[in-house]
Nucleic acid binder design. Structure first.
Length: 554
RNA sequence: GCGCCUGUAGCUCAACAGGAUAGAGCAGCGGAUUUCUAAUCCGCUGGUUGGGGGUUCGAGUCCUCCCAGGCGCGCCA
């Protein structure tokens, strides 16, 4: 059996040869949490009770790998002392490789060293922590900025989050597709084309005026110039020309940012597809509409207009139609990443979808809060119309893709993010991005060194020698990685990924600083190299998911 | 006015469907390198979780009132 490793071993054509040692195929493995749950469920049955207990990782690592609050909950219904119950239950639990300790009403579980050590061999494989196929199709829509200008900061955050979410969902075995909704119809597109038209007139020396709600950015002149060269005449033509131009600009920016969408869906196309009428008809048929003041209304908690008195649709109609298109394609779950200004209409959207016979509850909303840009402690105001705003490109130019993606993901999506541009730039030494990347580069360098010292065909044995406190702590993090990713994928709390990597890197840097690996205790050299490879694999996996690069030298 | 979100160390943020002594990073102070990368490591300092009341074995987390900030509340998107 040959295992590859993304280290220098692989670069130079050396491979680690592994015979089949059996440990690879141990059943169960890191599914320990699930097994604990099952065993506890069984015991709960003996008591004839049913409570909603949980098995979690305690914050304080002193308490072990898992803990449960079951005794407290049971104490309530049984009217008994939780401490007693804890001791009683703990005695009944027998899981191999797991030490069970009742402590003041909690039951704590500690994974044995042997299990942690054996797990190491799995952890150096590519795809460690990957989930099995789930048979669930998920659509993730994000960015979806109006095609009227360059992408700005909020889009950068949405792009980083959405892209990482898709990567993570795929890694955990879901079928996930990324999607961008292009609002290429409606009044703002008319304004765009009118603005471009004005600049065309300017170029041609004619009299011109920018419309009141027009766009003033420099890119409008670029489009005008290009339109003149291409000899665009018709207004409709100019509209689609302008939209295409800007959409391509946006795509370029996204590409730089390492984000590529699976699909772009045009609002114009949705409108022309006949789905609009089907939505209107469907809602009428469901008896959810009424007419008032020559307009068609949708009855909800707050009534909304669907068709204006002039016959135009309000934006919610194509929005509903668009979502029916998502469900038509067989997605089990539809995730929308939206800014805080768009929250309000989601309940109506869900209700309308349900009224139309679609699973409206399968629309999940994730709010991506605003990004405030701080420069020298001052908040920069952004106005798209006035053309004064920091674009995503400018931010990338200034700070670099890696720090931007890392910083955008570091904070919970639902919290506003204060992005201090000076700090992100200045922080070359204290920057957490480099801190994490450095652990990767450091290990690459270590492996190079090891190779030069003659450590080539490594045999994975002697893992039982990894028994120092520092070594065990690292093995523990490695062990929990798959479950950790599982939790993150389900909770969508992506900010935990950079945090995990910082913690892991910290443990490793600490260990590295304290102990000599290659020149150190002989029986520990090879096991420690494996330990390092596993850490590197985790860091690489995590940074890959975040779309952050993993340099081998720094 | 009504609704939603936020308020945690000097700063930026964590705390996983209420759980154990509220944790990191940065900043500040003091130390560590003849060594596989010092972009590193170790130690110290730092808190009435905006405030009051309530729910219970247990509250940063849930309820309620108040204070401060943000965002929504169109036949705009």
């Amino acid at each position: 059996m040959i295992l590859w490793c993304t280290s220098s071993f692989q670069r130079r054509g050396h491979f680690i040869h592994l015979r089949d040692y059996g440990v690879m195929h141990q059943p169960g493995g890191w599914r320990m949490r699930q097994r604990i749950k099952e065993v506890l469920e069984g015991i709960l049955k003996d008591y004839g009770e049913s409570v909603d207990f949980k098995v979690t990782r305690p914050e304080d690592r002193e308490f072990g790998d898992y803990t449960t609050n079951l005794p407290f909950l049971l104490a309530k219904s049984l009217k008994r002392n939780p401490v007693e119950i804890g001791e009683e239950i703990a005695k009944k639990i027998r899981i191999e490789g797991l030490e069970v300790t009742p402590v003041r009403g909690f039951i704590n579980f500690r994974i044995s060293k042997g299990v942690l050590q054996n797990n190491l061999l799995k952890a150096i494989e590519e795809g460690y922590g990957k989930g099995e196929g789930k048979g669930i199709k998920i659509n993730v829509e994000f960015v979806s900025a109006n095609p009227t200008g360059p992408l700005h900061l909020a889009s950068a955050r949405a792009a980083a989050f959405g892209d990482t979410l898709v990567r993570l969902l795929r890694y955990k075995g879901y079928t996930a597709e990324s999607e961008y909704y292009v609002n290429d119809a409606g009044k703002q597109i008319d304004n765009l084309a009118l603005s471009v038209d004005a600049r065309i007139k300017e170029i041609e020396g004619e009299e011109y005026s920018i419309p009141e709600d027009g766009y003033h950015g420099a890119y409008i002149r670029d489009i005008a110039r290009s339109a003149v060269e291409t000899d665009i005449k018709e207004f409709d033509e100019l509209k689609s020309f302008s939209v295409d131009y800007i959409l391509n600009m946006q795509k370029e920016t996204l590409k730089r940012f390492r984000v590529e969408f699976d699909r772009f869906v045009s609002e114009k196309w949705i409108r022309e597809s006949g789905r609009i009428q089907r939505v209107i008809d469907g809602l009428k048929k469901a008896g959810k509409t009424f007419e008032k003041d020559k307009a068609l209304w949708y009855r909800g908690e707050r009534d909304r207009v669907l068709v204006k008195s002039d016959g135009e649709f309000t934006y919610i109609v194509p929005d509903i139609a668009y979502h029916t298109y998502k469900f038509e394609r067989g997605f089990d779950l539809v995730i929308d990443l939206l800014g805080p200004d768009h929250i309000a209409h989601v309940p109506d959207l869900k209700r309308a979808l349900t009224d139309l016979g679609y699973p409206g509850d399968s629309v999940e909303l994730i709010i991506i809060q605003w990004v405030h840009l701080l420069k020298q402690g001052k908040l920069l105001k952004m106005s798209k119309r006035a053309g004064e705003f920091v674009t995503m490109d400018e931010l990338i130019d200034e700070v670099g893709v890696d720090p931007v993606r890392f910083f955008m993901l570091m904070i919970k999506a639902s919290s506003p993010l204060e992005f201090d541009i000076e700090l992100a730039k200045k922080q070359t030494t204290e920057n957490p991005v480099y801190y994490v990347q450095y652990s990767h580069a450091r290990i690459c360098s270590l492996l190079d060194h090891a190779e030069n010292e003659g450590y080539r065909d490594l045999t994975p044995e002697g893992f039982e020698n990894l028994n120092l406190g520092e070594e065990i702590e690292i093995l523990r993090e490695i062990y929990h990685f798959p479950e950790f990713l599982e939790d993150v994928a389900e909770s969508r709390d992506l900010h935990l990924i950079p945090r995990f990597l910082m913690e892991l890197s910290s443990l490793y840097h600490n260990f590295y600083q304290k102990y000599r690996i290659v020149g150190g205790e002989k029986e520990k050299v090879v096991p420690r190299l494996f330990l390092s490879m596993a850490v590197k694999n985790l860091v690489k996996t995590g940074l890959d998911l975040m779309g952050v690069s993993t340099p081998e030298r720094m």
